[in-house]
């Protein structure tokens, strides 16, 4: 089997595999990731083949033969005529105005400020603790339940009755509301961080998070501080996630 055929087969195989995974799973893998994977597969295959002299020759010989061998003259003529057109078309295709919307690099979890001014005081995020966690027994259960009521009166329209980010108004939002289930979102964050996001809302996001896209309300305006802590505790409890902590 020729070296080029191996490269083609392996690359194509990986491409189909990735597409297949997306297909079977029901959610296609992002095309940017697929193209990165495929390109890398191609590269590594070329490297493996070219390690030995024989392999390297099997890669270069067809090109050399094509360029210099008398028997390939006909093919060469055809390619030399076609090639400028193909390359010109590629250049055209790359530079023609695209109708894709400009693409925004949005940071989902940006760095929080050190100090947040909320509820008429300066709060140092690294120091603040969730007061609900100090409660025990029934008092704690009750606070969590209060948090649930607050959640279902304020948050579930977007973040969903299952806390999966798929509330009945979620599909109109871009970016989509974040889910609290799974290990990607609140499980990665400290409670003080979640507190900050709730209290300051989309408008409190730094530039890199494109605050102009988020319609998360500034809850400081309509919820009391204790209520925010209750709802924060609720979303952790309901989803079975643990907030990130640095020590125990």
């Amino acid at each position: 089997m020729g070296a080029y055929r191996v490269i083609l087969l392996v690359t194509l195989g990986v491409y189909l595999l990735l597409k297949g995974i997306g297909f079977v799973y029901g959610v296609a893998l992002p095309s940017s990731v697929v193209s990165m994977y495929v390109f890398f597969t191609f590269l590594v295959t070329v490297l493996i083949i070219s390690v030995t002299d024989k392999g390297a020759l099997s890669l270069t010989t067809p090109i050399i033969e094509f360029l210099y061998k008398e028997e390939k003259k006909k093919l060469r003529k055809v390619v030399f005529v076609v090639l400028p057109f193909v390359l010109a078309f590629i250049a055209y295709a790359f530079t023609k105005p695209s109708y894709e919307e400009p693409f925004t690099l949005r940071v989902v979890h940006p760095a929080p400020p050190r100090i947040v001014n909320a509820y008429d005081r300066n709060i140092e995020l690294e120091k603040i603790k969730n007061p609900i966690r100090e409660l025990t027994g029934d008092a704690y259960e009750e606070a969590v339940h209060d948090g649930g009521e607050i959640y279902f009166k304020n948050c579930f329209f977007c973040h969903g009755a299952k806390l999966d980010g798929k509330g009945h108004f979620a599909k109109g939002l871009n970016p989509a509301p974040l889910p609290f289930t799974g290990k990607d979102t609140i499980a990665q964050l400290e409670e003080s961080y979640v507190f900050w996001r709730v209290v300051k809302g989309g408008e409190g996001l730094p530039e890199e998070s494109a605050p102009w896209m988020s319609v998360m309300p500034v809850w400081e305006e309509s919820l009391k501080e204790e209520e925010v802590w209750k709802v924060v505790t609720f979303i952790y409890e309901y989803t079975g996630n643990e907030p990130r902590r640095w020590e125990k």
Binding site: I21, Y25, V27, A28, L29, P30, S31, V33, R106, V108, G165, K166, A170, N174, P175, A176, P177, L178, P179, G182, D184, T185
Partner: peptide, 13 residues
């Protein structure tokens, strides 16, 4: 893709 995945995180990746 953003709409399809429904968020910034792909569940598998």
């Amino acid at each position: 893709e953003l709409k399809e995945i429904g968020g910034r995180f792909h569940p598998l990746l």
